[in-house]
Design a protein around this nucleic acid. Structure first.
Lengths: 268, 268
DNA sequence: GGGCATCGTTCCGGCTTCCGGAACGGCAGG
DNA sequence: CCTGCCGTTCCGGAAGCCGGAACGATGCCC
């Protein structure tokens, strides 16, 4: 039997400060499914450090609620009700609502994949991704979350949020490619540059050959403006950071600015 | 104070047979947010028939897990982690994976909004919706779930699943427009017709002025084929059920068939 | 094909932890 | 300023949960 690629017990770390232990455990059980598409009671129990019987009951209870689904022979997977809840959650986001049409136009203009992302912990969560329609090389689309330090959106968000910057540094700058900026000083320097320029770039740092440009969507009074989200254009490095770069930068910045204004108008 | 449009206590009905009461309650709390975007402890407690303190703890625990988020002044809303889980759930669906490219081509062909839906209880849940790109009237996009009886996808699914048919009839055929088929006999007749034709239509039954055509995605051995999902084209009634109807029917059927074949190939 | 290892599920006693009522603090409206 | 209303906290009683072990089923390997 091979060594499990699993991260050891997650539960003791994050469930310590919350009441309702069984609910916390249930959430931890759900978390197990972010890494593995299908899990059984034994593996869940092992990963969380709980009794097998407890894991079994948790799985059954979550399945009864539709958050999990039973996939033959006692294995479980994430349930469709989660998809439903997730859609509801994001539909109710004013940000996404006002951003959507602008993103659509941006894609038309730049003819590359465009993204809308926010910070979740030290990661970037992509709320929307409109893929390029061209037949060119497609960006891989099989993730919805990235470490923030190796993402242009993450850089834009961190540039205006000192606490996010600290959290990212504390977690550590994990190397993904030979080009990932892993030196804290150099990484901070990229934030300085981002603030000066008003946009961020990310060259080959997450997936070699792929780069992106991002600009911030701001909110708050003019004195205390902060980035709540960011728009980015992503594509092969030669297409994004080559001769078209100035045009893409302008497109991304304009789109972000338009969303910022639309947000202000909608919330006032 | 106005009469609440809330359905009275949901919890006693569905949490009776499951162990882990607090987990069941937590799921019921989540369910409250399908109707209302934001809720506080008092309203949740009233709706579920639990103590205010219990509701408060539930909300706090769910928020600690990221399933809910605190929206200033003690109100809560669905959290982004749900979006993440939901994306994972649907990304891992083989059905969606093989259907996506076909749906894209179908939209190109018919130049209308196309949908992919499955049955969840007596509703249709839309796993994917590609909106028409044209500048024409857009179908409203603010829902992800429909009563199955007034949907062409629901009709297709019910036509091949007697137990779904029964469940829908037991729940009752709610009238949504003057054209909604609410007579059980007539509704059953539409299923017969669906089986004969191999596709279903729905004219002005959910939103007046909007109609759809759906065809089934089948699975299982040739003897026991059953619809697991369906593809549909939706647009204004004149565009969908007018002169273009034969072309749209053919397009939808071909797409559904291609997905069926692709699914078989992928699972064998 | 048979035996074995593994896994999911069930049962039960001890006790952890959760529930409900009441009191506290903050907020908004009168 | 006062008065509801609401979210949160505290506490005792007890209900429901946890963990270990036994059961039944599944699937793998020989």
């Amino acid at each position: 039997m091979t060594v499990l690629p699993f991260t050891p017990p997650v539960l003791p770390d994050e469930a310590e400060d919350s009441p309702l232990r069984s609910v916390s455990t249930a959430v931890a059980v759900l978390d197990c499914f972010t890494d593995s598409p299908e899990l059984g009671a034994t593996k869940v129990a092992a990963r969380l450090g709980i009794a097998k019987s407890t894991a079994c009951r948790m799985l059954a209870a979550l399945a009864a609620g539709g958050l999990l689904e039973k996939a033959g022979s006692g294995r479980y997977r994430l349930g469709l009700r989660l998809f439903e809840y997730g859609q509801l959650a994001v539909d109710r986001l004013l940000l996404r609502e006002v951003a959507m049409p602008v993103l659509g136009e941006l894609r038309e203009t730049v003819r590359e994949t465009v993204q809308l992302g926010v910070a979740v912990g030290t990661d970037v969560l992509y709320l929307e991704r409109l893929e390029t329609e061209g037949a060119g090389l497609r960006f891989r689309t099989d993730y919805h979350r990235n470490p923030a330090h190796s993402s242009s959106i993450g850089r834009v968000l961190a540039a205006s949020d000192p606490s996010l910057t600290m959290a990212i540094l504390e977690r550590g700058l994990e190397r993904r490619t030979p080009f990932t900026v892993v030196d804290p000083r150099r990484w901070r320097q990229t934030l300085v540059q981002t603030r000066e320029q008003g946009y961020a770039t990310c060259r080959d740092e997450y997936d070699q050959g792929w780069s992106s440009i991002a600009a911030p969507i701001l909110t708050g009074a003019s004195g205390r403006r902060r980035a709540v989200a960011a728009v980015s254009v992503v594509g092969s490095t030669s297409r994004v950071l080559g001769p078209r770069k100035p045009a893409l930068v302008q497109g991304v910045r304009r789109a972000a600015e338009r969303i910022t204004v639309a947000l202000e108008r909608a919330t006032s």
